[in-house]
Design a protein around this nucleic acid. Structure first.
Lengths: 352, 352
DNA sequence: TCCGCTTGCACAATCGATGGTGCAGAAACT
DNA sequence: AGTTTCTGCACCATCGATTGTGCAAGCGGA
């Protein structure tokens, strides 16, 4: 009956079996048969045979012919992070509901890798590419453009394609304000007690840092020069920044603005091995939301970027004709400490 | 110079430009030219032209001809979770280092979706498929087998293909023991003060529950019937389980064994809005590691599955000839509270 | 000079699906 | 009956790369 690895049925096999031509079989199977005036009964015969022989379309062949693949790409900096993995989860839902196949890959925030990855995806004739948090979005654009690949930037903006990003300035403003207000009037925060850790020279960090500065100045009257400790997007570099600060001052600041959940992991590394009491008075604001991060033993105010809205907007933009590149801001949300929010997983059905 | 969307160069274009035949161009570009006794100088000419015209191979065409695509698939239950996203991150590294292209997709723990997803991937002629935490691994096998697709189960075992899973029994034994020992001799834990939440009828849950039972019995002398509250892999259902327990007993147990980080999120939801003091005496063991989870305001002992070892073993097995399906156990590691471990991201270079 | 071997490459079939075009037979109309 | 209009489908080129095979030119030796 079935030999080891029986070859998959093709339209040619069904053509022989049904007595119709390959093109007729093809038309029936891809649904264009009415347009081609194929008789209902012929179609039914072929569909029956297809079912019987477990026919499935060879999508590489179709892709080659049509020069599109049905694949939609999502390029992330990294997977291992709730922000980006939520992004992947949300993205998949959208793509699936459009009958296409999501492909998620990461490019490690490396401009070179970003371009290579885009090129590989193009070689597979993917239909659209969503570029998330790219270090060099315009470099990726240069690769996509000549290939005629529709693409869009998310999270970090580029100049040459539409971008959908969260309103970093407003988010950071809210967060800074919330941190400051967290301290009552009896013992208000002083300008030299609130520091920002993390961030590098990308659009998001610049906006957040600007808002941090401005808000500190507005509410606390001043902001010392050294109020920002850049430490990229690496837990270990952030750890070093905390260690260094601790060396210099003999303590941590009373309040921290942490630029991302990845930087928060740097703080965790700093905490590990140190007594919990050391952090009991700490107040932290973190630009990113992680449910576990929200329940740390000190108040952590978080900013949740509206991933659903960003992805929705991105699809809207990528579908419509390209005009001149624009950047769209999506409002993020301030999350109070000890909040466990619903996420993309909650829309999945679950069997207990 | 460049019209909008100039067509990509093909071997035929280079064939004309170089005066060689398409087959020669093809051989040069895919590296088989020495075997075909192409002159060095001819090769150089073609390579030069390829560079000049930014030639890139159309991988769909190659895939069609070779009936392999260079794609390696990873099928996850979900993205949005540190365990699975670490898996994706680790997987990508391995695949990349082999010069192939990783494709990560999720299938929502839905057997139907799992099979559909596998079928789609097969239609793209992926070369190998890594099936992680599938609800119905053998169903997926039935799809892969006739297509001749090499595949392997990870995290949850199947009967029809090799499986690499973590040693759930031993992990759960260690975890249960650690929870119990956490309580001193002055005020030891009683059997009715330790409950397991989460889990369903899959291999991992069964093993963990068995170990939980056995260890409780061994160390505490007994284990009441209702010691296990199944609640699947859903935060909300787990939340309900906690609510229900709280209704019945007016309090939470002193100690919890939580079956996965997803179930831990159910606990977070229970905590939200309730006073922190309610949980100050709680001791939790969680089968999964999440860096933020490790620093909650009560001791959380975690089990970290050895993802790197699992993926490595899986590659080893999938590369070698299939013998009769076997299941390989990978030892997990007990993680003490307040530990911030390195992860797959730490191997990426980072620019601050 | 003729044979045989090597070198260097061209030819053409093939992978599986798609879609423009053409054409026979039936039906409709004059 | 003769002409036009539909129906229903077959034919065939095509997408871009791969690969088995064939063959001419060059070269060395007898």
């Amino acid at each position: 009956m079935d030999q080891r690895v029986k070859k998959k049925a093709t339209i040619y096999d069904l053509s022989v079996l049904s007595g119709s031509s390959p093109s007729t079989v093809s038309a029936v199977l891809n649904g264009t048969w009415r347009k081609r005036r194929i008789k209902e009964s012929t179609a039914q015969t072929i569909l029956g045979l297809a079912e019987l022989h477990q026919y499935t379309t060879n999508l590489q062949a179709r892709g080659l012919r049509r020069s599109r693949s049905g694949l939609v790409g999502l390029m992330l900096p990294v997977h291992d992070n709730r922000y980006f993995s939520s992004m992947a989860q949300t993205f998949e839902g959208h793509v699936r509901s459009r009958g296409q196949c999501p492909v998620v890959v990461s490019a490690s925030r490396d401009p070179e890798e970003e371009r290579r990855t885009a090129e590989t995806l193009i070689s597979y004739s993917i239909d659209q590419l969503f570029i998330v948090g790219a270090t060099d979005p315009d470099g990726v654009h240069e690769v996509c453009e000549p290939a005629g690949l529709r693409h869009i930037n998310i999270d970090l903006p580029g100049a040459k394609a539409h971008s959908v990003i969260s309103d970093n300035y407003e988010g950071a403003r809210m967060l800074t304000e919330a941190i400051i207000r967290r301290f009552g009037n009896d013992d208000p925060l002083r300008p030299d007690e609130l520091f920002l850790f993390g961030g590098r020279n990308d659009h998001a960090s610049r906006e957040r840092i600007a808002a941090f500065h401005a808000t500190k100045k507005a509410l606390l009257g001043a902001d010392p020069e050294d109020g920002v400790q850049s430490s990229g997007y690496s837990p270990d570099i952030t750890l070093c920044a905390f260690e260094a600060f601790y060396q210099r001052h003999g303590k941590l600041p009373r309040a921290l603005f942490v630029n991302s959940s990845i930087n928060m992991e740097g703080l965790l590394r700093f905490m590990a091995g140190r007594p919990a009491e050391m952090f009991s008075e700490l107040v932290v604001g973190c630009y990113d939301y992680d449910p576990f991060g929200s329940f740390l033993p000190f108040p952590v105010i978080m900013v949740r970027q509206n991933i659903e809205a960003m992805i929705t907007k991105a699809f809207e933009l990528i579908d419509n004709a390209t005009t001149t590149p624009q950047t769209f801001l999506i409002a993020p949300e301030l999350i109070q400490p000890r909040s466990a929010l619903k996420g993309p997983l909650d829309t999945l059905k679950d069997i207990a």
